[in-house]
C-alpha cells in the first residue's frame, strides 16, 4: 500500500533521512520508534507531503505521492499531528473541517452526508457528547480524540499519527491505542504511527521500524526488533527485555545508574 524507496530528505542543507526503505501493507499497524532526533517525525512529514524528498520516492498504491493532487492525497492519507487546534471552534465544527477534502470546487456548505460522516466519526471516537464544547475547554485526552475524529472524517485509507499518546495518562494512552487498533481491525484502516513508548509500540504494532541517525536500523515484528542488544546499541542505555506475561510481547525495563553500579560491584 505505502512504499518508501531509497528516501533521503531534510531541511535546507541539513540532511536528516538517508536510504529509507519501508513498506506498509494494507490493514497493517506499523510503528516508528527511535531516539530523539533520529528522524521519526521527519519521516512522517515526508509521507504526508510536507517535505519534498531529495532522493528516492514515496508511493501510495503505486503512485508517487508528489504526482497526486493535494485533494486526492488528502482523501487517502489523514494525519493526526501534535499541533493544538484553533481554540474557539467547537468539537463538531472542528471535525467537520475534516470533510474539506471531499468538497467540490464550488461547494460552500456541508452536505447531509458530510454531517453524517462527522457524526459517525464522533461516535467512533466517543466525543459526540462534547460536540458543542469549544476545543480549548476540553481535556488533553479528549482533544486527542477530537483530532482523530477529524482525521477519520477525511475517510482515509492510511492514517498517520505523530506520538498520539504524549502528555496523556496511562488510561488515556491505552484508550487511544485501543481505539486505533479497533479502527484497524474493524474498518481495515492502515496505520503508520510514531511512538515514543517502546512498550506501547510492542503491544499495539504489527510491525516496528527502528530509526537511528536517519536510517532504518532494523524492522520487523516486535519480537525481532525489541531485543536488548538492539535497543542498547541504538539508545545507548542499559535495558532489560522481558516478556509481558499477558500478551507475551516483549517488554522493555529500564535500569537506573545506581542499580547499574550496584550490579557492577557484585
Amino acid at each position: 500500500m505505502l512504499r518508501i524507496c531509497g528516501l533521503g530528505c531534510g531541511y535546507l542543507d541539513k540532511q536528516i533521512l538517508r536510504d529509507i526503505d519501508l513498506e506498509v501493507d494494507a490493514k497493517e499497524i506499523v510503528g516508528i520508534i527511535g531516539p530523539n532526533g533520529s528522524g521519526k517525525t521527519t519521516l512522517l512529514r515526508a509521507v504526508s507531503r510536507l517535505l519534498k524528498p531529495k532522493e528516492g520516492a514515496i508511493y501510495l498504491d503505486g503512485i508517487d505521492i508528489w504526482q497526486m493532487k493535494y485533494k486526492e492525497l488528502s482523501r487517502k492519507i489523514a494525519v493526526v499531528s501534535q499541533g493544538a487546534p484553533e481554540e474557539s471552534l467547537t468539537v463538531e465544527e472542528f471535525v467537520l473541517l475534516g470533510r474539506i477534502p471531499h468538497f467540490d470546487g464550488l461547494q460552500f456548505l456541508e452536505t447531509s452526508r458530510d454531517f453524517e460522516v462527522a457524526q459517525r466519526c464522533m461516535v467512533l471516537t466517543d466525543v459526540l457528547k462534547l460536540k458543542d464544547r469549544p476545543i480549548g475547554q476540553i481535556s488533553g485526552g479528549e482533544k486527542q480524540l477530537a483530532l482523530i475524529a477529524r482525521a477519520l472524517a477525511q475517510e482515509p485509507t492510511l492514517l498517520l499519527l505523530d506520538e498520539p499518546t504524549t502528555y496523556l495518562d496511562i488510561a488515556h494512552q491505552v484508550g487511544i491505542l485501543d481505539l486505533i487498533k479497533r479502527l484497524n481491525r474493524k474498518m481495515g484502516l492502515t496505520v503508520l504511527m510514531v511512538l515514543h513508548d517502546l512498550n506501547l509500540a510492542s503491544e499495539y504494532c504489527d510491525r516496528i521500524a527502528l530509526l537511528s541517525e536517519g536510517r532504518v536500523y532494523t524492522q520487523g515484528v516486535p519480537q525481532e526488533v525489541l531485543s536488548y542488544k538492539v535497543i542498547e546499541q541504538v539508545y545507548k542505555t542499559v535495558v532489560v527485555v522481558e516478556k509481558n506475561p499477558v500478551s507475551s510481547k516483549p517488554y522493555v525495563l529500564l535500569v537506573s545508574e545506581e542499580e547499574r553500579e550496584r550490579r557492577k560491584k557484585k
Binding site: L50, Y70, V79, I100
Partner: peptide
C-alpha cells in the same frame, strides 16, 4: 488550523 494542517486537508 495552520499551514501544515491545511495541506493535510488537501489545500
Amino acid at each position: 488550523l495552520g499551514e501544515e494542517e491545511a495541506i493535510h486537508l488537501g489545500i
